[in-house]
Amino acid sequence: MTIHVNIGEAKTRLSELLAAAARGEEVIVNKAGVPFATLVPTPEAMAMARDSRAAKRRAAFGCLAEKYKDHPPEAFDVPLSMTNEDYQARIARKLK
């Protein structure tokens, strides 16, 4: 999703816009209706955010960490419930 804001609005919503950019949204600051600048996170900020999310997941695992410590990380991957082709076929059946 792309967010377009003018300079005045960007001044008042800077924290919110920076958070949106850190989430991966494109934030474009306009001056007199013309795109003037784009907010993008630095690679270091992206790495810090990724590490923070990983730490929260590890903390949430919490009490079960000892029980599953010997399992490889791949053991916790959840397989897709259906393929894209299956999904498209299901939608086609519902729309008939």
Rank of each mutant, 00 (worst) to 15 (best):
Y68C: 09
L39M: 02
C63W: 08
V40Y: 04
L64S: 09
A49L: 12
M46H: 02
Q88L: 14
T83W: 08
A54R: 12
P79K: 14
I91C: 10
R90F: 15
R90Y: 10
F61I: 05
A55M: 10
N30G: 06
A49W: 05
A89P: 11
P41H: 00
Y87K: 10
L39Q: 02
D86P: 04
M82H: 12
R58Y: 08
A54Y: 06
T42C: 10
Q88H: 12
A45N: 04
Q88G: 05
R23A: 00
A55G: 09
V27M: 08
A32V: 03
E25G: 00
D77G: 02
V27G: 03
L80R: 14
E44D: 09
G33Q: 06
P79C: 09
A22F: 04
A92I: 06
P73W: 04
A22N: 08
T42Q: 13
G24T: 08
A22G: 11
N30W: 08
Y68D: 01
A60F: 04
A47P: 00
A21R: 02
T42S: 14
A49Q: 13
F76Q: 11
A49M: 04
A89Y: 03
A37L: 07
A19N: 06
C63R: 05
P35A: 12
P43Q: 13
N30A: 08
E44G: 10
A32S: 13
F61K: 07
E66Y: 11
V34D: 10
D51V: 07
R23W: 05
I91G: 06
V34F: 09
F61C: 09
K31C: 07
R58E: 13
G33P: 09
N30K: 01
Y87H: 14
V27S: 00
S81V: 08
M46C: 13
N30R: 06
F76S: 05
G24M: 12
R50Y: 03
N30P: 03
A32F: 00
A92M: 03
